[in-house]
Design a protein around this nucleic acid. Structure first.
Lengths: 340, 340
DNA sequence: GGTAAATGCTAAATCGATTCAGCACCCAGC
DNA sequence: GCTGGGTGCTGAATCGATTTAGCATTTACC
């Protein structure tokens, strides 16, 4: 029942050596002059006893815990959040690190508490993630604690990982344009004039910038831009519904995220319009629903897992460059765009 | 830059006392005879220096880390997984504990590695979660490491947290029956005869048991039972499509999960049938899509967050009973059932 | 006034590792 | 025979806390 954990001293005793020797051997110290025989005895003893070092004890000396803190404002609501975590976990596992997870709900008080709780446990570094990328203030951390921002930005001498939204925005437009769409393109989710001074988030701003840049480069312009704050299916439905009720005849919808696109499908279906035969749709995120829809929704994916993994890799790579690290947004082609 | 962490010794020095005294005072030891003055000085010194105990150092002595390991087969794919984690995080935060997260992909090798990695970090206990509840073998853990299974079962003397699937199954049937449905009820996802000997999972078995029990209690029977292994929208669509092509006229669909129901919506819509006017639908899980659908899907929710929280609470509550702890599955009423 | 008990505090051991300085032995060389 | 240098290993300090035993000093009581 109460199996005592095997300690280094146990291993040393069994090998008939001092724990100093055992420690050096098990850590593979290079310049030690311990005999081959000693090596064998210690290694065998460790294996036989199933020795595992006590990380807490070790970290007390060496100030490294092989543990990374992951602080997120949200864990559950979106697949984005869990994707980031999954990616981070994978990269951490690769590097034989483990992840301490904390959720803050975006509350600065809980953020501070989470940071404190993680530092109390001597994490080697902290990944600070936000779901809707925003500017964050990174509190000053003691000692050699490294920080990487994930989907967030701060001042230029922090390291951060972001989706390459501009490239993504351009890619979405390119998909429509390459398919031959030139007229009747509607942007769903944002109207440049109405929302001129509203702050959405860094990512959205860049996504839009990419979209507009590519439109311009190709000499295209939107038939209309429909604004709505909350990008949920209900609003996508309402927007398209209103558009169609007005007698508009859109040929392609550029939706700023998948739930909006979902709503658009619903409204189109009710009006007897078919995707993609009557209206093409392209969107962003690659949510689960994108594959659920009929026909499948072509969308520009948020590369959650790569981002999470990248953040951890940067954290562990002492030599990593500061500043922004952009991760490509892959184009996921399904069947919602018609080739003209 | 390299701000040294404040240690207990620093606090003691500033208070003009020994670190023994400081330790006892900060830990609120009851029977110590230290003066009020000493208390004040230590407390003040700690506050002024911003002292935070080093958890690793403490755990070395007291064998408690205020850290819980959470091992899951999957983190990212479902909202279920992240809900469990979110609930666990919340409960842990309440108790001033922190969560070490590990993902195994269901691979026994990675499971063993994850357990080892967590034990190396002296977690106080481990929550072992699976997404599709199954029977697991809990490896023998050393010492006083407690284990709680989440959405999984094992031998009877372990503690586990599960959704109350039988109650959920009954509730689904009750919703239809209470709305007046007696004829033309179709079960989507499982056929008792065809799949007699197939093992699905503990939860599914219980869900079905609850469904059948309630049907029987109310003197009802299914018009047909449609089997499919993988409960994704595509299959829900295909099943209902085939049903309708056969000329069947279902009045109510009992779908074993939300994605199946989603597929059913799609097939019904294509056949010009309306939910709930022509066909009522009830389902399970309360996925995100349940609220996205038009009309909203009435569904029996998987109580992820409560389950996650419960698991952590049980882990920390030394006196908790062994065996299964069932968490109610809430009925989420939307607009997919017609009152007859 | 002398002893016993209460009071207020500290020294030192301990947890499990890492790491540095250095001890004991052997052999070579003069 | 004595020095010097290599070999192979160990003792002890250390990290930052907790905890036990026990040392001074004061107070209580006869």
């Amino acid at each position: 029942m109460t199996t005592k954990r095997v300690t280094l001293a146990d291993v040393a005793r069994r090998a008939g050596l001092s724990s100093s020797a055992a420690s050096m051997i098990l850590n593979g110290r290079p310049d030690t002059r311990l005999s081959q025989d000693a090596h064998d005895r210690v290694t065998r003893a460790a294996a036989e006893l199933g020795y595992r070092p006590n990380v807490a004890a070790r970290s007390l000396r060496v100030d490294k815990t092989q543990t990374i803190g992951f602080i997120s404002d949200t864990v559950a609501t979106t697949r984005f959040a869990s994707g980031l975590i999954k990616g981070a976990l994978a990269a951490a596992e690769q590097a034989e690190h483990v992840i301490l997870l904390a959720e803050t709900g975006g509350d600065p008080v809980r953020e501070a508490e989470a940071i404190a709780a993680l530092l109390d446990r001597q994490v080697d570094g902290i990944v600070f993630a936000t779901m809707r990328s925003r500017e964050v203030e990174v509190p000053t951390l003691p000692g050699n604690t490294r920080v990487v921002l994930l989907n967030a930005i701060s001042d230029p001498h922090t390291t951060s990982v972001l989706p390459d939204e501009e490239q993504g925005g351009r890619a979405a437009v390119a998909l429509l344009a390459d398919a031959g769409h030139r007229e009747g393109i509607v942007l769903l989710g944002h109207n440049a004039v109405e929302e001129r001074d509203l702050f959405r988030s860094t990512t959205v701003a860049r996504r839009l910038a990419g979209i507009r840049a590519e439109m311009q480069d190709r000499g295209l312009s939107f038939m209309s831009e429909e604004s709505v704050w909350d990008w949920v299916p209900h609003n996508g439905y309402a927007l398209v519904e209103a558009l169609l009720a007005d007698g508009a005849q859109p040929r392609a919808l550029l939706c700023l995220n998948d739930p909006l696109a979902f709503g658009a499908y619903q409204a189109l279906t009710e009006h007897g319009l078919r995707v993609p035969d009557d209206v093409s749709i392209v969107s962003f995120d690659n949510d689960e629903i994108a594959s659920y829809l009929r026909p499948g929704l072509t969308t520009i994916a948020l590369p959650h897992e790569e981002m999470g993994a990248r953040a951890v890799e940067l954290l562990l790579d002492g030599t990593a460059a500061q500043g922004e690290h952009l991760v490509q947004m892959p184009v996921v082609v399904r069947d919602s765009i018609r080739q003209l």
